[in-house]
Amino acid sequence: MLEAISDWLQSTWLSHAFISQGLWAWPMSESLHFMGLCLLVGSVGLIDLRMLGMARGISVAALHKLVPFGVGGYLVNVLTGSLFVIGDADQYIFNDAFRVKMLFMLIAGLNVLFFYSSAFQKTKLLGPDDSMPLNVKIMAGVSLTCWIVIISAGRLITFYRP
């Protein structure tokens, strides 16, 4: 099943186009992937730190205006990440580091959905110097931990080639 998906991805036009771009497409996509990562840490990561108690004097609502840029970084990374998987599918689909990364992306995604559906409306009403309730702190901790694991596992992919 996975073998078939992997073979199919690598037989696509996009896969051939991306790989046969040769010298520049892959390294430049990797560079964009790193910049997207920095945008995510610099927005979502800093909001997580604020929720965990750092940087009093900034309200979550004010800092939350940075989130669209984090989402932009995330979309850049979904796009470039998809190119890597399509371009060299069997190096990712059978790679343990990639699987750990995907698992934590899923946990981070569920955590985001849970946060916005359960706590965000109350959190954005809190003032610049307010401490966050425990459930918000836990979700921020889960988020920050997930992103650290995602970056780490992502960087380890190249060392776990099947």
Binding site: L37, L40, V41, G42, G45, L46, I148, I151, S152, G154
Partner: peptide, 13 residues
């Protein structure tokens, strides 16, 4: 890579 994320992330913010 983690150091890059947090250093550049704070600078970008």
């Amino acid at each position: 890579a983690l150091g890059m994320g947090f250093l550049v992330g704070v600078a970008l913010a």
